[in-house]
């Protein structure tokens, strides 16, 4: 027969033990989200909080009407889509190439592919910004030397976003390559030997063995990249400030701009809510549509 104390502990104890972690989550995740959502319905007066007034959906209505926000939405989607396609594709190719056998050349290539990841994004952005200068940059000098047409890179709305994607992709590929190489190397050799005995071709081996075996890591990379790319900020802040003509304004840059340049906190909060919804939907969609196809050993 358990005494009252034991029964009490059995019921309450677990809650008390998870309470510290839950308090942290409540304070630093749940409360800010609720506050963000509530602020998005107010016209916030930072100097005199008494004058902050409820405006309903006005912040959202006005935000969706502006070209700046519309462009920010399209740009963020475009950036995320192409970053995922390019980075995932290139990382996979590099990983299969570099991870296939261990040679000095491969190790050196692996290290140099990873190198951009350890450089700060601010430095990378500034260096690429100079290299992409239409008048004095090395890129146009090379294009000119090869007899190709020069590009305006960051100075034209047509090429600015692609230039930013190129820079971000250059920096990210090495990191994801490393994750995929580790995944490839964890595939038991015996499976490949068995496939070899069955005379499976290399393409078939790749699609039927390699890809399914590393699918958990690809799934992880996909989730992390989607969320990360929807939150792109520093590359844009450093390289273009969202310009020219809002061609590179992303959702997060829009939010930053509203808070720290226009001091319109309500509108920024509305932008934050939209970002939260988009990233939330994307993550749920991935889990629902892809999780069944991921092969777990």
């Amino acid at each position: 027969m358990k005494n009252v104390k034991d029964r009490f502990w059995e019921k309450i104890g677990p809650y008390l033990l998870v309470a510290p972690a839950m308090t942290g989550i409540a304070l630093f995740v749940i409360y800010p989200i609720i506050k963000l959502i509530s602020m998005s319905f107010y016209k916030v007066n930072q100097l005199n909080p008494d004058k902050t007034k409820f405006v309903g959906f006005s912040n959202y209505q006005k935000m969706f009407k502006t070209a700046e926000f519309q462009k920010a939405l399209v740009n963020t989607g475009y950036y995320a889509l192409f970053m995922i396609l390019i980075v995932l594709g290139c990382s996979l190719i590099l990983a299969v190439w570099l991870g296939s056998k261990k040679s000095r050349v491969n190790s050196a290539a692996q290290a140099s592919a990873f190198l951009p990841h350890i450089i700060s994004m601010v430095s990378v952005g500034l260096i690429f910004q100079q290299m992409m200068d239409p008048d004095y940059g090395i890129f146009n000098a090379l294009l000119g030397a090869m007899g190709l047409q020069k590009s305006q890179f960051l100075r034209s709305s047509d090429s600015a976003m692609n230039s930013v994607i190129f820079t971000s992709a250059w920096k990210s590929i090495g990191y994801y390559t490393l994750i995929l190489i580790a995944a490839l190397q964890s595939i038991p050799e015996s499976i490949y030997e068995a496939a070899d005995l069955d005379n499976a071709g290399s393409v078939r081996t790749f699609f039927k063995i390699t890809l399914p075996m590393i699918s958990p890591q690809i799934f992880f990379v996909l989730i992390v990249m989607t969320i990360g790319n929807f939150k792109v900020f520093e590359t844009i802040r450093v390289m273009t400030s969202g310009g020219p003509n809002n061609a590179t304004t992303s959702l997060v840059y829009y939010i930053y701009n509203k808070v720290f340049m226009d001091f319109d906190v309500g509108r920024a909060a509305a932008g934050g809510v939209i970002l939260l919804i988009i990233v939330g939907i994307m993550t749920v969609l991935y889990f629902v549509s892809l999780s069944k196809k991921v092969h777990y050993q």
């Binding site: 070209a67 700046e68 305006q152 100075r155 034209s156 709305s157 047509d158 310009g243 020219p244 003509n245 809002n246 701009n257 340049m261 226009d262």
Partner: peptide
């Protein structure tokens, strides 16, 4: 408060 719009216009007209 209208500086963003003006800057975007200047970029569109003078770059593009």
């Amino acid at each position: 408060d209208v500086a963003n719009s003006i800057t975007a216009m200047m970029e569109a007209c003078f770059y593009d």
